[in-house]
Every structure is written in structure tokens, then in C-alpha cells.
Design a binder for these strands. Structure first.
Length: 627
RNA sequence: GCCAGCGUAGCUCAGAUGGCAGAGCAACUGAUUUGUAAUCAGUAGGUCGGGGGUUCGAUUCCCUUCGCUGGCUCCA
């Protein structure tokens, strides 16, 4: 909708809000901002010429961002009021809410939150307007210096702009790009959720600030729904479900970041691993296996000792220093180098389910998703530069196929050269372009993650979400021009001369541990039949049915079905309940009726009963489903 | 590693100003022979995460250490 079609608007300057009102926009009380010629702006912005106006409603993505951002300003105001001497830094909107980082004489505690929240409610009730003013950077610096707000001064200096915008609500003025809601009264539903430490500007060498997180929604109902959603998601938490389902456990006395796989979990891994081996063999990979301990000298040659030492464990054998492998590439390269290779032999694709150890800092460990010992479905593809593009595309297809089987949505990122890295600029450019080209050729959407590559090359990362929406890197495809150089890998080309091959490091699931963690949350523990460690359980009704039960058990085992039996002298209701809690796909009810025809009555996890059938029919049914 | 929170029976959780540690479920034993999400009764189960200190006395207060959770940083 346009202003200026209306004479009155064109004639004199008026606020965007008044203009929208004049234009007859409905639901103005739910409009938090405006887009002027596509640019997000405050409702108080003056309109004095013809412009394209679009109302931004509170329930839109941008509307919620604005609301959340303004809520963070209200929080900063409350905190400044309650804790004299506190210094403010930044306070953006994030997914579902906002945070603000403060520097105070002591970190904030959870018990501080109710007080702050109360103060915020007070501010909201007063319905204080947000006012935007512009000033020169020097004026702003003088202003903040007068208040002792050194962080703001640093921000303005780094902005290096001539002018900056400032937002004031009541007694609180903050450097801010905006826009903001018209006044604090528009905040209808928020809650402060947690406190956390955060380094100033994300740099661990700079001061640790105290961050307060909050959530904000359009109304109380949405807020309640969100809280409920988070509670539901917590029930899917793999760290809780895993031990309950008998998959794995951790033990204080073993140490952190180390997983102990119980029978069902070890079975689940076995299923995943055999599936993976099959899929790799299908695609022209060869199985290999390297040792866990390799001489430190070799890690030195590869550059790991220089660039990755702090993540590695070392030991000594016969006065010789060894490093425990944090990656599987070295042995694969030695396998390649063990023979003279012709261009006709390439690409070589070496696959290993390689168990690696990495020293992760204690604070980052997280259930199965971040551990110190894990197994990668790792492969190294050694190919000619001409083959690089096709090989990367091949891996991207592989990723798409596998993620499709598990019904995962994923996000792609290309990570570029980090500060700590080896290799020439030309090599990095070539490798980075190869990755981007393969993505473009496959018509894939991706983000760029500057400076986040491995030390030896750029990479494509595939991120999956856990139950709480946190993103975890699983697949990764890394391009490497450097290690082939260091290890002098060569192939003989058509011209009879030695040439340098390229190496791709890649994983599909990533780490089996992490992937299982995500899988548990993805399926809420109710794995599809082909993955379920226990596919069926035989539930007898009375002791009379045990002989037939044993026969069915034997028959199903012979048919390679992963079957358990519950022959206890307990009521059927109890057995059904317990199997249900274990999320076993099929419960085979076995009473007198079933004994008569030598069959079973399958009951599904969703409570549905299949008709009485003989054992052979059930085997056909479940075999079909298990692929 | 840093900031905050947490650690009581296998699990979920009570508990007290510092004075013999409590429930439900699970486990075990017995009875029951049962038809689609919990049969009844009884028994047993704890260095209150570990170590040190203060105290007549510590699960409780203090220090330290291990582990977990949510963030930061880092990463599969």
C-alpha cells in the first residue's frame, strides 16, 4: 500500500503509525513496526513523501524479533535499576526470545531472576514509549563515557560510523539499530529463563559477562505452548531415554565423555554399522582398518602435532612417543602410498569405522552428542583434481540418500579457511571453489561459515537438530590439498609423470555416538522396525502357553528376527505395559487361541492389534518391514 | 577451560536450625495362572557422589575433588 495516493498524507509529515491508520490498516494494536519501501522501521518514523508502507504484525518473524529485542531493552532497564553499577553490553533477539549481557561485580544467579522479572512487569505496566534519536558518534561516546559504559564506547568506536541511533525508554538509553515496538505496554508475555556466562564479544581472553536469557511471545497462550513444547522435547532427551531403554550408560567411575554400550545399544550400533558397510561397498568404497596408536613423529609430519595437539592424548612405548589417533586419515594415506598408483586406479575410496579419541574440554561434554571417545564412519577419497567435483557430488548424493532413509531435514554450511591452518592460498581457493561448485551443481542451498574450516582444508558440514532444536554437525566433507603434499602421495598420469592427487575426508553419519543420540530424540526412542534392537517380544498369557512360546521364539530367532520373550507369571496387562515402555515395535500375544492354531496375535506400539496369524505369516510381515 | 545450577535407595523424588534417613515404583520371596499400559502380601535395599575441615556430633556449614545439566568458547 502506498502513501501519497492520499492527499492528506502527502501534504504534511506524519508518523508511519498515523499513515497506516489513515490507510485503514486493520489490527493496528498488533502492529509493532513498519516496512518503509521494504526497510524495517519504527512506527514513529516520520513519513513525508510517497512511500510503500507495510505493517509488521507482532506474530510475524520480524514482528517477534522486534518484540523480543525490545523486551531485552526492558530487561536491561530493570537490571540497571536494581543493580547500580552494572554495565550493559549487547542484547539481541534470538530464537524464541532474547538475552542481554551484563558486567556486574558478581555474576547473576537464578535467584535474581524473579526480582528482575517483577521490575520488568512494572516497566511494562507503565507503558513507556520507545524514542529514537540520532547523534554523532562523538556525542554518543561522551554520553556513555559519562555513565561509565565502557563497552558501549568500544562498540561505537568499532562501528566507525558518523552517526548512531539511540533508543530511550524512560530512564534507559541504549545504543541500538532498532527498530523497537512503540511502547513497553505491547509486551504481553515473557519470562526470564536462565543465566549463563558469556565472554565479551565471544572471546575467551576477554571478560566473562553475565548473560540473562528470556523468552517472549505475542500472548500468554503462545508462551504457555512454547513452555509445554520444551517440556515435551525434554522427554525425548536421549541422555534420559537411552539408559531407560537399556541402550547405554555412563559411569562416574569410568570418567566423563566415555560411553558404555549396554546390550540393546550395542545391537543398535551393530545394525547401523552393518547398514553403513553395505551402503559403502555398494558405492565403491573399500574397507580398511588402522591402529589407534601411531608414532608422534607421524603426527608431527601430518601437522596434527602442531595444530591439534591440545585435543590429543599421548603415551609412550619403549621410550618412543605415540599419539592416540583423533582422526583416521594417516593410516589411509600410508595404504595409498604402499603401491605405485596409476590414474586408472583412481579414485581410491577407503572406508573405516574408526574409533578416535579427542580431548574435549570438560565443559563441552554433552550426553552422546559430545564425547571423548567416538567412532566415525570415516572415509578418505583420493582422486585426481579432475575427479574432485564428481566425487564431492557423489558424497552429497550419499548424504542425501542416507538422511532420507532416516527422514532427517538438514542444513548445509561451507566453512572457509581458519586462522590456524596449513597450505597455500591458491590451494585453499581451489578447494573452497570445488566444494562450492559441487553444491551449486547439485542445486543445494547452503550458508557460509567464515573461518570455520579444518586446519588442512575447507569443508561442507551437514547439521541435524536435536529435540530442543540445537544444531549438531554430523556429515562433513572436507577437501584437502595439503596432506597429499606432506605425505608425497602421487599417481602416474597418462603422460607417464607423477602428479599430486587430492584427498577428501568425509563422514556421513559423523560419529555413531552422536548420530545415535540424535536418532533417539528423532524417534523418541521408538525406532523403526529395521533399526529396533528388539523387534518383537513374545508375551504369554499363562504358563500353559510357554511351550508354544518357546517354539515361536526359536522359529523367529532362526529367521534372524531380534526377538525377546516374557514368559513370567504376570498379568498380560503388565507385560504389555512394560514392552510398551521399551517401545518394542511388535508384541506377540500368545494365549490359548494362538496355541490352538500355532500362531500369534501381533500388537503394535500404537495399541492396534493385527489379526491372529500363524508364525510364518508374521515372519513374512516383519521381514518385509526390516528390508 | 569459564559462568550458573544440581548430586539423598536401581528410578522418580521427600526430608531436617547440625542430633537414629523417608515414600512410591523397580528388585527379591511367597501366593496368584491371569487376554492388551501397573494382581496381592512380605522382605531386603543408603558411608545422603568422593576426600578434607569446623563441631561433642555433619547428609545438612566451610574447603576441595569427581560427575551431570544449561550457556560461553571449542567441535563429529
Amino acid at each position: 500500500m502506498k502513501t501519497g495516493e492520499d492527499q492528506e498524507i502527502q501534504a504534511g509529515s506524519m508518523s508511519a503509525y498515523d499513515a497506516l491508520a489513515k490507510l485503514g490498516v486493520k489490527g493496528l494494536d498488533r502492529v509493532v513496526a513498519v516496512k518503509i519501501n521494504g526497510e524495517l522501521a519504527d512506527l514513529t518514523t516520520a513519513i513525508d513523501s510517497q512511500a510503500e508502507l507495510e505493517p509488521v504484525y507482532v506474530n510475524s518473524t520480524e514482528g517477534l524479533q522486534t518484540l523480543r529485542h525490545s523486551t531485552s531493552h526492558v530487561m536491561a532497564m530493570a537490571v540497571k535499576d536494581l543493580f547500580p553499577g552494572v554495565k550493559v553490553t549487547i542484547g539481541p533477539a534470538v530464537e524464541d526470545g532474547f538475552y542481554y549481557d551484563f558486567d556486574y561485580e558478581r555474576p547473576f544467579k537464578e535467584e535474581d531472576l524473579p526480582k528482575i522479572q517483577e521490575k520488568m512487569v512494572e516497566i511494562i505496566k507503565k507503558n513507556i514509549p520507545f524514542a529514537c534519536t540520532e547523534m554523532t558518534s562523538q556525542e554518543a561516546i561522551d554520553f556513555f563515557q559519562g555513565l561509565g559504559e565502557e563497552y558501549k564506547v568500544e562498540l561505537i568506536n568499532d562501528l566507525g560510523a558518523e552517526k548512531v541511533s539511540m533508543y530511550t525508554q524512560g530512564s534507559f538509553t541504549d545504543l541500538c539499530r532498532g527498530p523497537h515496538i512503540p511502547s513497553t505496554g505491547m509486551i504481553k508475555a515473557f519470562a526470564l529463563t536462565k543465566v549463563a556466562g558469556a565472554y565479551w564479544r565471544g572471546d575467551e581472553k576477554r571478560p566473562m559477562l553475565s548473560r540473562i536469557y528470556g523468552i517472549a511471545f505475542e500472548n500468554k497462550k503462545e508462551l504457555r505452548q512454547h513452555i509445554k513444547k520444551v517440556e515435551e522435547a525434554k522427554k525425548r532427551n536421549h541422555a534420559k531415554l537411552g539408559p531407560q531403554l537399556g541402550l547405554f550408560n555412563t559411569y562416574d567411575e569410568i570418567g566423563s565423555g566415555m560411553i558404555v554400550w549396554h546390550p540393546k545399544g550395542a545391537m543398535l550400533r551393530h545394525i547401523l554399522e552393518t547398514f553403513e558397510i553395505r551402503e559403502h561397498l555398494k558405492r565403491g568404497y573399500e574397507l580398511v582398518k588402522g591402529p589407534s596408536l601411531l608414532k608422534t613423529e607421524l603426527w608431527n609430519k601430518s601437522g596434527h602435532f602442531e595444530h591439534y595437539r591440545e585435543h590429543m592424548y599421548f603415551t609412550e612405548i619403549d621410550e618412543q612417543s605415540y599419539g592416540i589417533k583423533p582422526m583416521n586419515c594417516l593410516a589411509h594415506m600410508l595404504i595409498y602410498r604402499s603401491k605405485i598408483r596409476s590414474y586408472r586406479d583412481l579414485p581410491k575410496r577407503y572406508f573405516e569405522l574408526g574409533t578416535v579419541h579427542r580431548h574435549e574440554r570438560s565443559g563441552v561434554l554433552h550426553g552422546l552428542l559430545r564425547v571423548r571417545e567416538f567412532t566415525q564412519d570415516d572415509a578418505h577419497i583420493i582422486c585426481t583434481p579432475q575427479q574432485l567435483n564428481d566425487e564431492i557430488k557423489g558424497v552429497l548424493d550419499f548424504v542425501r540418500d542416507i538422511m532420507g532413509i532416516f527422514e532427517f531435514d538438514y542444513e548445509l554450511e561451507v566453512s572457509t579457511r581458519p586462522e590456524k591452518s596449513i597450505g597455500t592460498d591458491e590451494d585453499w581457493d581451489m578447494a573452497t571453489n570445488a566444494l562450492r561448485n559441487a553444491m551449486e551443481d547439485s542445486h543445494l542451498q547452503y550458508d557460509i561459515n567464515e573461518g570455520d574450516g579444518a586446519f588442512y582444508g575447507p569443508k561442507i558440514d551437514v547439521k541435524l537438530k536435536d529435540a530442543l532444536g540445537r544444531r549438531w554437525q554430523c556429515s562433513t566433507i572436507q577437501c584437502d590439498f595439503t596432506l597429499p603434499e606432506r605425505f608425497d602421495l602421487v599417481y602416474i598420469d597418462k603422460d607417464g609423470k607423477k602428479h599430486r592427487p587430492v584427498m577428501i575426508h568425509r563422514v556421513i553419519l559423523g560419529a555413531i555416538e552422536r548420530f545415535v543420540g540424535i536418532l533417539i530424540e528423532h524417534y523418541a526412542g521408538a525406532f523403526p522396525t529395521w533399526l529396533a534392537p528388539v523387534q518383537a517380544v513374545i508375551l504369554t498369557v499363562t504358563d500353559r502357553n510357554i511351550p508354544h512360546g518357546e517354539e515361536v521364539l526359536r522359529t523367529l530367532k532362526e529367521a534372524n528376527i531380534r526377538v525377546d520373550a516374557d514368559f513370567r507369571n504376570e498379568k498380560l496387562g503388565l507385560k504389555v505395559r512394560e514392552s510398551q515402555l521399551q517401545k518394542i515395535p511388535y508384541m506377540l500375544i500368545l494365549g490359548d487361541k494362538e496355541c490352538d492354531i500355532k500362531g500369534v496375535t501381533p500388537r503394535l506400539r500404537d495399541g492396534q492389534n493385527l489379526p491372529l496369524m500363524n508364525t510364518k505369516e508374521f515372519i513374512d510381515l516383519i521381514s518385509q518391514e526390516s528390508k
